[in-house]
Design a binder for these strands. Structure first.
Lengths: 257, 257
DNA sequence: CGATCTATTGATCCGTGTCAAGGTTAGTGG
DNA sequence: CCACTAACCTTGACACGGATCAATAGATCG
């Protein structure tokens, strides 16, 4: 058995809806392994808006896969105020940082009604012995998680506020696309305050920028929705002052050849 | 067999210096498993200052463990200029983000003469079948890597430049301590330019701040060395304007009880 | 010992945080 | 269904931190 990023969620869905026999046929997996997995994966469990999946400091006894909806990870920073560390959408796995046996470093809250699959960590740990390829799949998940977070780190590292916001919009669009949602008319259940925190900006700056973008016909802003109208211009903003120089430098950098 | 964070590196060191028989006795590991591991781990391999372990875009066909020295991970950002994504010290594992089978997202360069253990990814992938607990150990490594990077993300997310630098100094001190180096007199083979990039600041700002800290008797600055003289004051700076408020809020937050 | 890269220091200016006030939305209870 | 309240968003004025430009001094290396 070998899972991969795209089909794992679909597999979970089928997993809980179908009989073992049908699944074994459909995915070419041995019946005993499936039986074992069914003991580990629970769901899809419905979650309400504002529901907390786990809190900062709690034991990492479960990880979650987002079946539907969106979630925010937040933590109290050194100053004591909440700051948004991460946003999760369909297909993302939550709580991987606690797989090493440590506690959760952040609090996870649902931004809208949705549903998740829940995987108990202790049960997962024993199941890996019975299900070949499962642990390997976990490694793949974590490596992708590292890359996903890396992207956010580069985002908050940007100096220009407009670049940050533009990059953020493009990221949301990309995510919507892979989730099968509309990549142009983006639904986003996030307050300005949360966006600002996620981007490392002040609330007022986000508000000002969104409205400036709207004035310049780059986007349309509505409640809980942002529509991209001029993607090229947004990309240009996201890339910094001159993308051409970047491209030129990239082409001349040694590893490229 | 069960490795853990602290002894894995020591295990590698012993691994390459001793005979299989002696190791099997010392660590209580079966001889066949050791034989298998020896095929995967190479080193310690000496590296020169400025040597590149891998380049951005290269296939992720190996991961490395730092036996000695320090390394910087850099990548060309959207603007085309190099930016420092990460710093690695003794005991850190490099290249984990490529374990999922993807390419390296950054270039890895030695900051000083040192040595590394090299683990071939394809060989590692086959070895996990023979060595129980190895894949599980990899998952632990990656979860810690996620947390380590998270810390950096919070660092670059800080607004105040002095906070960033102070946090950075404390991080270096903490790392030096766990590596058995002097946590007060920190060796650091890093140009101002690289520090600035790592912290998301301008070179001049770093220079000014370091000298301001030195003027205020917080630190002593020498070539490739920084000595912490007033750790309390540095902590205060790192924590933002008032650490007390933060502590109070933390104590009153619901998950704490 | 010059050539090149790196660090320091000063002057200036722009961007964004902060404070303040008013407007809008959402959620609650009568 | 509407009044009421609290939370959220927008907009303006202002100050300040840090980026940027520029020029000099110091370090490093062949």
């Amino acid at each position: 058995m070998h899972f991969n990023q795209l089909n794992l969620l679909g597999f979970f869905s089928a997993f809980c809806a179908y009989e073992i026999e049908a699944l074994a046929l459909r995915y070419g997996v041995r019946r005993e392994e499936l039986q074992r997995l069914r003991e580990v994966v629970r769901g899809p469990l419905p979650v309400k808006r504002g529901e907390i999946l786990y809190r900062q400091g709690a034991r990492g006894d479960a990880i979650f896969a987002v079946a539907d909806g969106s979630f925010k990870a937040s933590a109290a920073n050194a100053r004591g105020q909440e700051s948004i560390l991460d946003l999760y959408f369909q297909g993302d796995f939550l709580g991987l940082e606690a797989l090493g046996g440590e506690t959760h470093g952040c609090t996870l809250e649902a931004l809208e009604p949705g549903s998740v699959f829940k995987l108990s960590v202790p049960e997962l740990a024993t199941a890996v012995a019975d299900v070949p390829g499962l642990e390997r799949e976990l490694i793949g998940l974590m490596s992708r998680e590292i890359c996903r977070r890396e992207e956010h780190r580069m985002l908050v590292g940007q100096k220009d506020a407009a670049s940050k916001l533009a990059s953020f919009l493009l990221y949301l669009s990309r995510r919507a696309q892979t989730d099968g949602s509309d990549p142009v008319d983006i639904r986003l259940h996030l307050r300005r305050q949360d966006m600002a925190s996620y981007l490392g900006l002040a609330t007022e700056t986000v508000s000002r920028l969104l409205n400036r973008f709207a004035r310049n016909r780059l986007i349309d802003v509505a409640a809980k929705r942002i529509k991209l109208r001029n993607r090229d211009e947004i990309s240009r903003l996201a890339g910094g002052k001159n993308l051409w120089a970047a491209a030129a430098l990239l082409l001349s950098s040694p590893w490229y050849f």
